[in-house]
């Protein structure tokens, strides 16, 4: 009970800070919209010319990819905000209170997930005039999956930030992980276009299966194996994120 109340206090505080300085929220939103407007038309041609692509039109391939990109990239950088708070003494100040350590993490994660969900819904809605045709339930499930994915990366980002306590160390770490993850996930173009060795490599990447799952959802294949694997991998990442995150926040002098 206390945990929920404390999580709520941390969440509201974090949300207030985001709304007061919405630059990052807006940048996170504009970026996928630019992809939609400037890269989408290009992709449409490619998809039409490539018979090896999975069924579904270009937007059903492209929008799920953008959503996953938003989920991974948008939330990976939340750790920078935490380092700023740490520098200001906010984390220490909250650590001397009776608040549950998990609330200090959970409240911030909830804010990140909420911001992400708003961005994801907007992105999907804006894609409709571009030509996206998908089932409402499929899209909603897709957006929800992205929310869970974002929660995982937000927790991991906070854990890394609290361990490193330095922007200069966090930035290369995040780029070093997020960029290969995205390149090997077939976000822009499905991995079925890749040579075999690249496909094998990308099979090891959970984000690839999540993108595939999301594409199945947008096609309306809610009960497919692709959907299932996407969900399993999302939940797996979330479990890892929560484990590492709570462990880090509980650590001495974290």
């Amino acid at each position: 009970m206390n945990l929920l109340r404390e999580t709520w206090v941390v969440f509201v505080r974090a949300l207030r800070l985001s709304l007061r300085n919405p630059v990052w929220v807006v940048i996170g939103l504009i970026q996928p919209l630019l992809y939609l407007a400037l890269f989408g038309p290009l992709l449409k041609r490619v998809v039409e010319a490539a018979p090896s692509l999975p069924p579904g039109d270009a937007w059903k391939i492209f929008v799920p990819g953008l959503l996953v990109q938003l989920g991974v990239f948008g939330t990976s950088f939340v750790g920078f905000g935490l380092i700023a708070e740490y520098r200001a003494g906010v984390i220490e100040r909250m650590r001397v209170t009776t608040a549950h350590r998990v609330a200090l993490l959970g409240g911030r994660m909830l804010r990140d997930v909420l911001v992400l969900l708003v961005q994801a819904v907007l992105l999907t809605a804006v894609a409709i005039p571009f030509g996206l045709r998908t089932s409402v339930s499929g899209a909603l499930l897709g957006v929800a999956t992205v929310g869970l994915l974002g929660a995982a990366f937000s927790a991991l980002s906070y854990a890394a930030a609290l361990r490193l306590k330095s922007e200069d160390a966090l930035a290369p770490l995040l780029n070093g992980i997020a960029i290969p993850l995205l390149l090997l996930s077939g976000i822009l173009l499905p991995m079925t276009l890749a040579p075999t060795w690249l496909q094998r490599l990308s099979d090891l990447n959970p984000v690839k299966h999540i993108v595939d799952g999301l594409r199945a959802l947008f096609r309306g294949d809610v009960a497919s194996t692709a959907t299932m694997w996407g969900l399993v991998d999302t939940i797996g990442l979330l479990v890892i994120g929560l484990y590492v995150g709570t462990r880090t926040f509980r650590r001495e002098s974290a």
Binding site: R16, L17, R20, A84, V90, M94, T98
Partner: peptide
Amino acid sequence: AAYAEALAGEELVDQARLY
């Protein structure tokens, strides 16, 4: 212990709430 971007009063209320 106060965050630069936060409002002074809100920081204080939030801290009390966390207690």
